[in-house]
Write a protein that binds this DNA or RNA. Structure first.
Lengths: 109, 109
DNA sequence: ATAATTGGCAACTCAACGGTTGCGCTTTAT
DNA sequence: ATAAAGCGCAACCGTTGAGTTGCCAATTAT
């Protein structure tokens, strides 16, 4: 599997992380605990519905999971997809690090 | 600097990576060499202008730099911003890895 | 029983995005 | 000198995205 085809699976994850609100939500969920929507919405400058939409995006990207408990929806982080995205970036930087290293020694145009 | 404030700087980078065309462009540029727009557009199923727009997004995110040489614009990868994004994801996963580890041992609600 | 919390669903607005076409300018090739 | 290559700019279009409001159902608290 090429690097690109490995990456396209992570594209939705990157897209999801490309919004500061969702970045904030992921940050709040990074302690591994589970939170209700109102808890997650607290302090954010947008409606509960807005937060719900963002959480839905994160869920579609596989980055969070939710479970209905009584009247609330509890959200938790799902580490795997983000770990995959991280691995892609790690491989990518390793790739051009050595490529640039090669270009530095032999001046190939 | 908190993790979030470190992350919001990476949001445009993540957003830029959230498109499969730009992911492909980054992949093509990952050898550290520089390419003209038509070279980068080759094989992609969209117009030269479309590619130009994507390259502009990558440039705004600081992920590529371009230099005019004669009649062509040569684009090269700029590793730093992507490395920062990678570092953020690495720190984030490390954080919830240990958090989840703690939650596994002591069952704290 | 009644009121408050929590949240899902649908409709709507406005802006941003991805992509296109057309045109003109500069640089290179013939 | 003329043609072609490479690119930038601007206008335009359809779709998606973020965010809102309003309403109703279910659960919990009083």
């Amino acid at each position: 599997m090429s690097k690109v085809s490995a990456a396209i699976g992570s594209a939705p994850v990157f897209a999801a992380l490309g919004d500061i609100t969702r970045l904030e939500l992921v940050s709040r969920l990074s302690d591994g605990k589970h939170y209700s929507i109102v808890q997650l919405a607290d302090g954010l400058n947008l409606t509960r519905q807005g937060v719900t939409k963002h959480l839905h995006v994160l869920k579609q990207a596989g980055m969070v999971s939710c479970k209905r408990i009584g009247r609330e929806s509890r959200f938790t982080i799902s580490p795997d997809p983000i770990a995959k995205a991280r691995d892609y970036l790690t491989r990518a930087s390793a790739q051009w690090d050595e490529a640039i290293e090669r270009l530095k020694t032999s001046v190939e145009e």
